[in-house]
Design a protein around this nucleic acid. Structure first.
Lengths: 135, 135
DNA sequence: TCAGGATTGACAATCATTCTCATCTGGAAT
DNA sequence: ATTCCAGATGAGAATGATTGTCAATCCTGA
């Protein structure tokens, strides 16, 4: 076969490493770095190479299974979200607690701004940072 | 002179290096990496150490004189904007052409979302990427 | 003019991320 | 169940941006 619009993806085989990674990610709601995840896997007893963690995280991200964003110092952090829908995050810069949010108005605004300036194939990044109640 | 609200800041002395850097930045409207800027300075004949470029870029950024954002691969890129006001960017992912935009509605939305979830000391990052007309 | 702290530059050190490549493994075919 | 092979993995080297170190140098105020 081979659909049209969302064909997505070369063959992707299930492996113990990927399963373990997905499990660890599902167990937390915070954004974690590849290094963090690698450490968690270690302490859980699941030995997975660091490079493998990076590779799978990339794959999962491009498959839309996890969201990625950059910390202020440029480190990439990942999180498996509750919804595959397009959404944004409200992140506590103290504890990392994350709330998924969406805002139709904002989406429209971004699209409109881009269109008005003749830009096409538009995407955007919107993240909100703050300090949550428990801090 | 010396504004009022944003006094901030330790002593900051004027130097040839910083002046050259500011000049180069003022000459372009694209977001450039520290490395790019360092290269431009070199080819212009102004010899400035790479570390110095990084240090000044940081200083300028925390002084609000330049805007910083991260490329998809985590590299920090800088740009001196036309206004010191809070604003966002619409960036062409092909040529780097940048348009400064603002959206009061979006600002309010972000603030509201944060407040509704009990978050304080809120900040946000909003960038729009697209392909501009000349591509 | 002088002193002292800010600034600089050359280069080492970090550190996250990617690359290499030999080995391993899932799974479709036989 | 056995074979075959491209995708997947891991250990470690390599890359590359950014930061740290520290002696030499440059403003600026007294």
């Amino acid at each position: 076969m081979s659909s049209s619009t969302t064909d997505s993806g070369p063959t992707r085989r299930p492996t113990r490493q990927r399963a373990a990674l997905a499990e660890v990610m599902a167990a937390t709601s915070e954004f974690l770095s590849a290094q963090d995840l690698h450490a968690k896997l270690q302490s859980r007893g699941d030995s997975v190479g660091l490079a493998t963690v990076y590779r799978n995280l990339q794959a999962m991200a491009s498959d839309g299974d996890v969201d990625v964003l950059r910390t202020d110092d440029g480190e990439a952090v990942y999180r498996s979200c509750g919804t595959a829908e397009h959404h944004h995050h409200l992140v506590c810069r103290e504890c990392g607690r994350t709330v998924e949010v969406d805002g139709p108005a904002v989406e429209k605004w971004a699209a409109e701004v881009a269109r008005a300036n003749g830009f096409t194939d538009v995407t955007h990044t919107i993240e909100i940072f703050g300090t949550c109640t428990s801090h």
